Amino acid sequence: MDKKVLIVEDENSIRGFLKINFRRNDFTVIEASSGEEGFRKAMLENPHIAVLDVMLPGKDGFTLCKELRDRFPDMGIIMLTARNQDMDRIMGLEQGADDYLSKPFNPIELMLRVKAIIRRIESKDVFKDKEVVERNGFKLDLYSQKLYKGDKEIYITPKEYLLFKLFIESPGKAFTRDELLNIIWGYEYFGDPKIVDVNIRRLRTKIEEDPSEPKYIQTIWGTGYRWNNEEDI
């Protein structure tokens, strides 16, 4: 399966330049122009490598780096900055970055550093993507985006698929309604926040034996939802 790289850079010209170089090296490229968008796409796409600009609108690169490192311990993270200052480099590494490059940089050097990080990831045997995620009797096919319970397919909408994928890949993790809204619908969504509850309720009717007494997607009263981490339910 293709290697995935997340590029979070607000300058279109630099982001386009990076995209071309990564695609030439057989990467699937995920783009974002802000820290908020970058985190949301990381949660949905699970990239192997993230290339983060330090100076981003809204959430800066250092904050995003820390959030990604907390959520994805094995992700390779490289920081980019236009400021050639030791303090930036130190701060980036302290937040969990694997490496650091100052602009302007040589694309060959960037790819060499990326490949070095990939070798580290491969040596830990965590680089291989799973085409099928299995938990509690469910099978989620990431290629076809189909959900099965046992051998029976459960028909779900694209948003229900994203919700289910997020839950099943993060068992036991509590998500607030705002987090789910931002991750699945995006920070630019300004509709009714109750859309989260509506989609959870609809998803429960499809996967739970008794939607009124859910055992898979649990409600955390006053907060949000989480996937039951017990394997034998």
Rank of each mutant, 00 (worst) to 15 (best):
A174L: 11
G191S: 09
D232L: 05
I90V: 15
Y161A: 05
L147S: 02
K4H: 08
W221N: 12
R113S: 06
I30H: 11
M55A: 14
S212R: 04
K3R: 14
S144A: 10
T219Q: 10
P158T: 03
K149A: 11
D99N: 09
S170T: 15
G222T: 04
W221I: 12
V196A: 04
N136K: 12
S212A: 11
I14C: 02
N12P: 00
K152M: 08
S212H: 08
K152C: 07
L112S: 06
A82T: 09
M87D: 14
E131A: 09
Q145T: 13
E209P: 01
D129I: 01
P57T: 10
G96D: 11
L44I: 13
E160D: 07
G76T: 04
E134K: 08
R113C: 06
G137L: 05
D125E: 15
I207L: 07
I154E: 06
L80P: 00
P73I: 14
D74Y: 15
E11T: 08
R113F: 10
A50K: 00
R177L: 01
D88N: 15
A82K: 06
S34A: 08
K139P: 00
I30V: 14
Y189D: 10
K159C: 08
N84H: 05
F175H: 02
K159D: 12
H48L: 15
D151Q: 11
N25F: 00
F72Y: 15
K165R: 15
E31Y: 05
F72W: 10
F17C: 06
I156K: 02
G96S: 09
P193Y: 00
D125G: 03
A42P: 01
R120T: 14
V51T: 00
E36W: 04
I117K: 09
L142F: 13
K139A: 08
D70N: 09
D86K: 07
R202S: 14
K152A: 12
I168V: 15
K103Q: 10
K146Y: 07
F62M: 08
D74F: 14
K103W: 04
M91V: 09
E169K: 07
E169S: 13
K3N: 13
V54I: 15
R204L: 06
E209K: 12
P211D: 03
D192R: 01
M91E: 13
I7T: 10
E209H: 07
K146F: 04
E230Y: 10
S34E: 05
E134T: 12
D210E: 11
